[in-house]
Amino acid sequence: MTWPLFWSNLANAISLGSLYSLIAIGYTMVYGILRLVNFAHADLLMVAAYAALYGILIFRLPFVISVLLAIVLTAGVGVLIERRAYRPLRDSPRITAMISAIGVSFLLENLGLVLFTGRPKSFPVPGFLGASTDIAGVRVSNITFVIIFVTAILLLIVLYVINKTKTGIAMRALARDFDTARLMGVDVDSVISLTFALGSALAAVGGVMWALKFPQINPLMGMMPGLKCFIAAVFGGIGNVVGAVVGGFLLGVAEIMLVAFLPSVSGYRDAFAFVILIATLLFRPTGLLGEKIGEKV
């Protein structure tokens, strides 16, 4: 492989890794608090991408306003899902809530198929983002820089919220010990709603940037990235935001590099993440940065 090709693969890998990280944060926050694999999280990517698309094409809104509205809408959908489909099951076995999450995920996908049809739509990429820049003979598309920049900013914001604000402390308290936190006066419902709003907003940003990077969107676009991002969260150590980011990055980079160096296995690209998942769970179930939590009997 030539060096320029390697660098362009690396740029591609880092931008994919950033997107995985952004989406994985939502999984890890929800899992940390509710011990729930929020299958529907993946489909919020699709909700955000279509909301932005319709804002631009149907309502003729400027790109930025349309994207902001899409983020707000997606956050609202995330909160609504929690309230209707997960909150009534908070005291049920965890698997029951997961079945509900699978149901919501399929509901969103099929609603998407009904409303937007299964035919892929092309996402209107603004001219500046569609162009690319030459760096020392390597062509890197501008969206790559935007993705990395936006991910970095959002990650800092999330870390600030989780570590410095009162809500963040409440989130961490809930993640550590749900019942004690409640007894200490944490308003469980509103903190969980906020968690979903934050996670869904990040998924929305991820979804829009995904649509900018891969401008053919369809109602099932979130399915595979969603599963992979959950895997990234497990790989990094579930419940740990920094772990999710590290896991997302490593998964994205590994996936692109695997295909770049071993083109013969490109047919198995989507299987790679699952191999990582199984290996992680077998050899280091807490993930790279996770803490060991003993099972309570």
């Binding site: 011990r35 729930l36 694999v37 965890r94 698997i95 997961m98 599963l227 959950f230 895997i231 497990v234 299987a271 993440a273 699952f274 191999v275 998942l277 199984i278 769970l281 179930p285």
Partner: peptide, 11 residues
């Protein structure tokens, strides 16, 4: 639990 679910889905 859920790890088993995701792993079997992966397999």
């Amino acid at each position: 639990g859920d790890y088993l679910a995701i792993a079997t889905l992966g397999f």
